[in-house]
Amino acid sequence: MDMLYNILIDPFVQMVDAPDFLIQVVWEGFVAGVLYALIALGFVLIYKASGVFNFAQGIMVVFAGLSLVGLHQKGVPAWLALILAIGIMAILAVCIEKFVMRPLVGQPDIILLMATIGMTYFLIGLGEVIFGGEPKQMITSELGLPTGSTAFEMGERGLVILQHIDIAAAVIALLMVGGLAVFFNRTRIGRALRAVADDHTAALSVGISLNQIWAIVWFAAGIVALATGIMWGARSDVSFALEIVALKALPVLILGGFTSIPGAIIGGLIIGIGEKVGEIYWGGLVGGGIESWLAYVIALVFLLFRPQGLFGEKIIERI
């Protein structure tokens, strides 16, 4: 009976008792969710255009963040470092397309997935050789990002503290999604991208260069990775530990659907808020730390009922 009370009633009593705390927790989850969503966005971009499940998106985030901070530490001014980091992501995109994707065209999904796992290892090694393994401080203020925080009074009920950088992260994520939507729907390249996503062969036959498109898509994912790296780095440090956290994008994608950009966003928010709330209010019952796997279990349960995700286009192959 006690157990049932602890699971079913007590957490909600706590929520009602301290709404300011609940709002704070939900906000924290929301921000984490925005970052998951940004990583998932990178996955979706590449998956849509090439059908490749890019396991390396997490390390691309780390790599982008590290090159930005590393360049700044070498004495490059922040704005130039940002431009150079974008350039590095472009070079990376071209190299990946040329040396990994092009030779593997037409291989089964699993082979491509394993190739991106190999890429992950290569980039981890490369990043550590170039920039060293220790965590680095993100150059938040040099990039002109806000650093302060605002406390909102909630009448008698206490207060909620919002970090400005978190608000900036949410706004930038929103702008990015808007920009990508315009890019996909309104520009010539965007149309070509959608054509490639629909059907490789048909796209080729109307004169779209697959190789060029793939390089562009990987570059776009690289830009998203850079933005994610900056935002995440501003909250904690830029370190290789991020790479494991980035795996959370997988359950996000299962929730949102592999091909849907809005799905990635909403999936990210559900996972982010769900795991924070779950950790704070229910985690204590089993000893805490459930954040590390709750997302996967949510995804697992979801898979049983709606395998194509919330916004997925087609039903995946059932067995």
């Binding site: 040396f99 990994v100 082979i111 190739a115 796992i117 290569f122 981890i124 090694g125 550590e128």
Partner: peptide, 14 residues
């Protein structure tokens, strides 16, 4: 070694 292994994975897959 990690870089070499990562590169070899891709090499072998190709």
């Amino acid at each position: 070694a990690q870089m070499v292994i990562g590169a070899l994975i891709i090499f072998f897959l190709i």
